[in-house]
Design a protein around this nucleic acid. Sequence first.
DNA 1: TTTTAGCACTCAGCAGGTTAGAGTGCTAAC
DNA 2: GTTAGCACTCTAACCTGCTGAGTGCTAAAA
Lengths: 348, 348
Amino acid sequence: MKMDDRKQKVLLAIVHDYIATAEPVGSRTIAKKFRLGVSPATIRNEMADLEEQGYIEQPHTSAGRVPSEQGYRYYVDYLMKKHDLSAEEEDLIRSEFDIKVKDIGQVIQKTGQLLSQLTHYTAMVLTPSIGSSRFKHIQLVSMNPTQAMVVVVMDNGTLHHRLIDIPESISADDMETISRILNAKLRGLTNENIKLTLVKEIYFELARHKHILDLAMELLEDSLTMKSEDKIYLGGVFNMLNQPEFHNVEKVKTLLSILEQEKLLYGLMTGEEQEVGVTVRIGGEIKNKEIKECSMVTAAYSVAGRKMGSMGVLGPTRMEYAKVISIVDFMTKNLSQALERMMKGTGK
Amino acid sequence: MKMDDRKQKVLLAIVHDYIATAEPVGSRTIAKKFRLGVSPATIRNEMADLEEQGYIEQPHTSAGRVPSEQGYRYYVDYLMKKHDLSAEEEDLIRSEFDIKVKDIGQVIQKTGQLLSQLTHYTAMVLTPSIGSSRFKHIQLVSMNPTQAMVVVVMDNGTLHHRLIDIPESISADDMETISRILNAKLRGLTNENIKLTLVKEIYFELARHKHILDLAMELLEDSLTMKSEDKIYLGGVFNMLNQPEFHNVEKVKTLLSILEQEKLLYGLMTGEEQEVGVTVRIGGEIKNKEIKECSMVTAAYSVAGRKMGSMGVLGPTRMEYAKVISIVDFMTKNLSQALERMMKGTGK
DNA sequence: TTTTAGCACTCAGCAGGTTAGAGTGCTAAC
DNA sequence: GTTAGCACTCTAACCTGCTGAGTGCTAAAA
């Protein structure tokens, strides 16, 4: 859909001004602020055309124009110029990821805080999960006469644990033995790599502990396929309340009720087949019906080409797309690198 | 401060009606709804007295009266009748805790959800932490040539972990040895029990691994003294938005900004020396200046007399104190029992 | 002395009406 | 194709008066 050059300029002006002011944009404003070299009347004509084509709309008869979802989409796809982060912003992000990683959970949390702080919207970060991570270590720990804890450590630095019931007849030494054998057989394997023959072998060796083995293998299976619920870090929800579109309490309520449902959020983050790079979803392009007048900018972070998790920003459709896209892009890259360093163990 | 019997009845009527309707209560309303056997005029006189003594106040000249913080305090201390939970509520709570505990984190989260669901206010639950828990197991897991993960399991079912740098010279076998020795020497000890002599002994045996030992002992120390940040589970924030006092967006904003600061919340939950049983803090009795017109009802849960953590409800001062107190009380008791069962391993 | 009825007074909130200003669409001239 | 001018529309802000809830005071009743 080719568009007249001047029309593009008008649309761009409307989008920019509306993003900046949250007020419907009039023809006079455009003529004054954006110096297109034509009079308001001409701009009015262009605007009438743009409205007919669905790129902008009018809240009411005597108001200015506001970009439609289609308008934002056109802006993001064709008009938007790359936004360069300020040196301070880049430094802030770099220094954030330049620390020694002690605990992945903490890094994720910090990432979320920083993301919301820089964008002034709500940030969502998914913990490392998807993808085939490798099994590092399993340990059975006796907790009391009838229970033990199974701890599984994965190579991406995540931990999984579960309490299981055990027969009283099992001794601490037995558990040590089980742990040792499981480790010896399975270390370094991904889910796909665990061959049936291998499992049979283990069951054979540990026949008398079948019951425990069942429970341990179950957790292991969950850890490897990452069924275990992934955590989502949410930050800067109250940033959204500073946006004029959320001065209405009803809207705040629906927003909050959505953000409290982790599963729903999880669906939002993983729902779309995420291509490489940054994905922008505008308004109705977000599948969820309850989320209205919002856009999401998401991207995946990865290690050695393996997708680990994703982060994203939720804001009003009137979002500073260019800036947010740059930030999300830069942060995923830095997070990926930091995790890469952590997993490879290359230096600080 | 002894109070006239009829004054008490009037105060009670005002508190009850205001809690129910959120509207200032007038003399006529009291006379009609609460049948004290006297006319509105008499009640007006009593109300004038109550206002003079500071138990109630008037939003503006021609409005009814509203309980003051002092009024709520008097209500909670002297007037409130015990609220019995409905059979359904009790069943709901019991069935919640009657499951087999697989993971403490999950139980905490569910507890928070249920608490907010039953009270319709915001629930806060602190993970098990304070108190001297015992060390169960430590494990060093090699992650890559230069890093290892230290995993510590505590007897209250919590896990702590941290990535540490290691010299390349250390082999996986070395780490296994270190783990084994640490476990043998330290299992079952609390922080106070770890004697200096014992530590020296360990350092002597593992002299050549001093560096790793330092890092491992650091995590251990943190785990035992529970310095590591405790998690707070928050639930039902959006419940608060249904309260008429939060129809003002500004108030919602300050509330949310507070709830996003975990440290602040942590201070709120642990700040007061929590006595046994349920604590009620009304309005200004909450230390935080930013929290206005809110009350908190908190209680600790414990295992075998050892305080483990606490849970609480944050709501407007116009809170259904009697009901909330009963719920918090009942839930802490049930949670304590569930954890007790888990740690003792006595059946499901 | 306590309670009550009656009455004048106060004030928030709402409905209705008016105005100001922003912005449009159309028309006719450039 | 562009622009100035103008009539028109609609919202938001402001004023105004009214209503109703609720009070405090006074004087009479119990």
